[in-house]
Amino acid sequence: MRARSMLVALALIVASPASAQDYAEESLADPVKEAQAVALMDSIRCVVCQGQPISGSNADLAGDMRRMIRERLAAGDSPEQVRAWLIGKYGDWVSFKPEVKGQTMPLWLVPLGALVGGGWLVSRRLRPKVPT
């Protein structure tokens, strides 16, 4: 009896209109585009749960974003076009990949400055002592 009801449930699931693909959860047929889509999803912040990328979030809106990303890549948009569209809607914060622009320059310049400063300190240390 139990097995039969399970079978019926299974048949219902199979027969349900899932034949229309839902790109929120299903991969694109093209493996290259799917890889691009997943890479993009890993670097877009879920605006509901915030600490997570949309690839790992159960929020409805994250699912909507995954679907939108796969649909747009399938339609021929590049991942960076889709990222730019999302930034245009939600601001820089939605992307985990910082843009290179004036405001974010310290992110690149500070490590460089630290390296130069550290190198200078080390070079002073390594300089042979001149007897005074």
């Binding site: 605006v47 809106l61 939108m68």
Partner: peptide
């Protein structure tokens, strides 16, 4: 439909 309008508005919730 699938959060399309919500995303287009930049609405987060």
């Amino acid at each position: 439909d699938g959060g399309r309008a919500q995303m287009a508005f930049g609405s987060a919730g």
